[in-house]
Design a protein around this nucleic acid. Structure first.
Length: 777
DNA sequence: CACACATCGCTTTTT
DNA sequence: GCGATGTGTG
């Protein structure tokens, strides 16, 4: 039992309490993952067949990590029959084997949100409903809400309150759209993400024998991040656990940050009500962070009313105070962060992967990318567009999806005319209308063109094109019977003309698209290899498709060299991670807390939990920063410090640019010379800036408050007629070199100002502005 | 059908 | 400011 060594008392209790309901409240950094894995190991060591254990997580990453760690303790072979995965993947697997109960094919397609939006757009159009009033994305959000709360179409129409609600919101057609959307998905043999949960509920409630089967199988259930479960997930877990009640949920109500997508914090807050006999264990010792960080985080989260009272503490060193930096602009903030990282890297030999920059919104990324690039600091941006959401990748995947499930009309119409083969919109519409009138699917029409051609009212040329297209798809399907998925996919990429079309585009973007296709092929090969190595692996195309549908792998395309890099991500993405040094940036009202989430107490409490999550990522040092003005939506907007800053007791904070403070507080306007005297804490945190020979120096005018502080010169456009102000940091276009960014400006003589510009593709150039004909963009 | 131009809308997003 | 989406024109 050496795996029990080194656990503290509550951890030990959580691991060894095997029977009955158990709730583990795991404060930030308290060793939650360790407890979960040791608990599973302990179950197996106590001769509980792994076959009877189900462990549910929210991310693939968490599932994989836990599985690896369990395997290390109990051995690969023991760990294998364990069911461990995300809610969605586990239930997708169950649904595939039981699909016939609820009228779905077992090879149903899984739609991602983009697919769902596309289907909804078509539904809205078909219903002749004003698309301006019903934005597909918004409507999907609504439908998702309903599904997550188990409000089916039928339940919706039986609930006058809901209908009235939507009517009052001027959305009276929501019910109808919802209905048509569900019908469309059913016809396509497709489920969206929410369906994977909703349909599982349907399966378990409508068919007691199915429920009994899985209840008997899953005798020991563990749920990670329980505070993030939605109602639908809650009901499934409850139903499955109701026979044996060996259910262990682990979570931290203080870290519930996904209510905007249906997570219901009440699930964890009410666990005791559901299971009155439940044992509760609180893990309160934080092993991650300094006392200062833990205490500061505690003070802030303590302002929330809705929470379990916990006493999270640290016995690590007290640590440094949290440094607060007030900056003039987003660019200034970014420059500070980059300099600070650079300095710590040099003075304390810290690797770049020990730093994280956390922000509230993805749009804040850019300024930091710029500032890090200027200092040649390697970084990696997490999140953003997932690899599998790229258009070119989706296109090839759509072909493959069509091979597996030819009823998938969404996939069909995505590829029927891409690459262009003369099957235009009107032809497509005719196909849809005709298929609807005959009450069959479009694939059935295409499969029996000989029979339907006379009634289709299409000319022979088009009929031939349709026939050719369908013959191609059919040929791929035949091929799939003998060849492996990779070979078929390669053939699809070539024969469909996809690769050729992409290769015709020799722009950098076009080249990267081809690379993405190659990367998709590589990942497919990797998947097949992997599956063939494990016993009863499934290297089929449909399994590959399911895998990518349920994984938001954003980094597939990044060649992973092993250079340590600074991590840039949203706070949401940082949950579960830890970094020695954390920069929490953009601490401004309306940004964090977000202006969208400042109206109700519930929303604000979630933002505060988000703040808590962000701060507790830090192990040794935390830096806060905010800007008094920033670019937002193309405009410079004034900003006020976030309320969260004032919620941290000042004993934990240290302002690091008081010089600026006093200067800036007097509102007499900024004199130009303020820039000459290192007002931004420069003496301490900035390497000396490039010398600036500003024209403003000779003009004792009041500089507008919102002028970017890094501005070094104004120049007159050489054309003479128009004059433009160009500043450091501006993006410019050059006839020959393309798009670039001004690095610095030099020179006092207006006729002889030089600009150093780094162009996206051409690299660094020194230009004399008078001749360079730059345009600001 | 391709391209150019206009318009919108814009938090977070494990699946 | 920017990218996705939609509309119009040749």
């Amino acid at each position: 039992m050496d795996y029990l060594q080194g656990l503290n008392e509550p951890q030990l209790e959580a691991v060894t309490t095997i029977e009955g309901p158990l709730m583990v409240l795991a404060g930030a950094g308290s060793g939650k993952t360790r407890v979960l894995t040791m608990r599973i190991a302990h179950l197996i060591t106590n001769l509980i067949d792994p076959f009877h254990i189900l462990a549910l997580t929210f991310t693939n990453k968490a599932a994989k990590e836990m599985k690896d760690r369990v395997a290390k303790v109990v051995g690969q072979s023991e760990a294998k029959s364990l069911w461990m995965g995300t809610f969605h993947s586990v239930f997708a697997r169950i649904l595939r084997s039981e699909a016939h109960y609820i009228g779905f094919p077992s090879n149903f397609t899984i739609y991602d949100s983009q697919d769902s939006v596309n289907v909804l757009k078509k539904v809205i159009k078909e219903l002749n409903i004003d698309g301006d009033l019903y934005k597909a994305k918004k409507v999907l959000g609504r439908i998702s809400q309903y599904k997550n709360n188990l409000i089916t179409v039928k339940a919706y129409f039986n609930n006058p309150e809901l209908i009235e609600n939507d009517e009052r919101a001027n959305q009276k057609h929501i019910g109808l759209i919802y209905q048509k959307y569900v019908e469309a998905c059913f016809k396509n043999g497709a489920m969206d993400f929410d369906d994977l949960l909703l349909r599982t509920n349907e399966l378990l409630t409508r068919f007691p024998e199915v429920l009994a089967k899985y209840q008997d199988r899953f005798r020991y259930i563990l749920v990670d991040e329980y505070q993030d479960t939605n109602h639908s997930q809650y009901l499934i877990v409850k139903a499955l656990a109701s026979k044996f009640e060996n259910i262990c949920v682990v979570g931290d109500d203080a870290q519930s940050i996904y209510s905007f997508r249906g997570a219901n914090i009440l699930n964890i807050l009410n666990f005791k009500k559901d299971y009155p006999d439940a044992v509760t264990v609180s893990l309160e010792q934080n092993y991650r962070s300094t006392q200062n960080i833990v205490n500061a985080a505690n003070v802030v989260i303590g302002k929330n009313l809705q929470q379990f009272k916990k006493n999270v503490f640290s016995e690590n060193e007290v640590g440094e105070k949290i440094k607060v930096y007030r900056s003039l602009s987003d660019a200034d903030e970014a420059a500070f962060v980059a300099s600070n990282i650079w300095q710590l890297h040099n003075s304390e030999q810290m690797n770049f992967d020990q730093f994280a920059i956390l922000y509230r919104t993805n749009s804040q990324t850019r300024a930091f990318e710029d500032s890090l690039r200027k200092k040649n600091i390697p970084y990696r941006v997490y999140g953003g567009l997932s690899f599998y959401q790229r258009k070119e990748v989706k296109d090839l995947v759509a072909y493959l999806r069509l091979l597996v499930n030819e009823n998938d009309a969404e996939a069909l119409f995505r590829v029927i005319n891409f690459p262009a083969r003369g099957i235009g919109e009107s032809t497509q519409n005719k196909l849809i209308v005709f298929a609807d009138s005959q009450n069959i699917t479009v694939s059935q029409v295409l499969g029996n063109l000989g029979q339907f051609a006379p009634t289709l009212q299409l000319n022979n040329g088009i009929i031939t094109k349709l026939a050719d297209f369908w013959a191609m798809i059919k040929a791929f399907q035949v091929m799939l019977k003998d060849e492996n998925a990779y070979t078929v996919a390669m053939e699809v990429a070539k024969r469909s003309g996809l690769i050729k079309t992409l290769k015709d585009d020799q722009t950098p973007e076009g080249i990267s698209r081809v690379e993405n296709i190659q990367e998709l092929m590589n990942s497919m090969q990797g998947f097949i290899d992997e599956q063939q190595q494990v016993e009863d692996g499934d290297s089929s195309l449909s399994n590959f498709l399911e895998n990518i549908a349920l994984s938001a792998d954003t980094q597939k395309d990044k060649k992973d060299d092993n250079t340590p890099k600074v991590s840039l991500m949203t706070i949401h993405l940082s949950k579960g991670l830890e970094f020695p040094v954390v920069h929490l940036v953009g601490l401004e009202e309306n940004l964090f807390p977000s202006f969208m989430s400042s109206s109700t107490r519930e929303e604000l409490e979630e933002e505060r939990r988000l703040f808590y999550v962000a701060l507790t990522r830090a192990e040794k040092r935390a830096f806060f920063s905010y800007a008094i003005s920033r670019f937002q939506w193309g405009k410079i907007t004034d900003a006020e410090p976030s309320r969260f800053l004032s919620e941290v007791d000042s004993e934990y904070l240290e302002l690091i640019n008081p010089a600026l403070e006093s200067r800036f507080m007097n509102h007499s306007g900024l004199k130009s010379n303020i820039f000459d005297e290192a007002p931004m804490g420069e003496t301490r945190f900035f390497k000396k800036k490039e010398p600036k020979k500003s024209l403003e120096r000779d003009e004792p005018t009041i500089i507008p408050k919102n002028l970017k502080p890094v501005a070094t010169a104004k120049i007159i456009n050489p054309s003479g007629s128009s004059s433009q102000d160009i500043e450091v940091g501006d993006r410019v276009r050059h006839d020959r070199f393309g798009v670039g960014e001004v690095q610095f400006l030099d020179g006092t003589d207006p006729n002889n100002i030089k600009a150093k510009v780094i162009f996206q593709h051409e690299g660094e150039k020194n230009l004399i502005l008078k001749f360079a004909k730059l345009t600001k963009i």
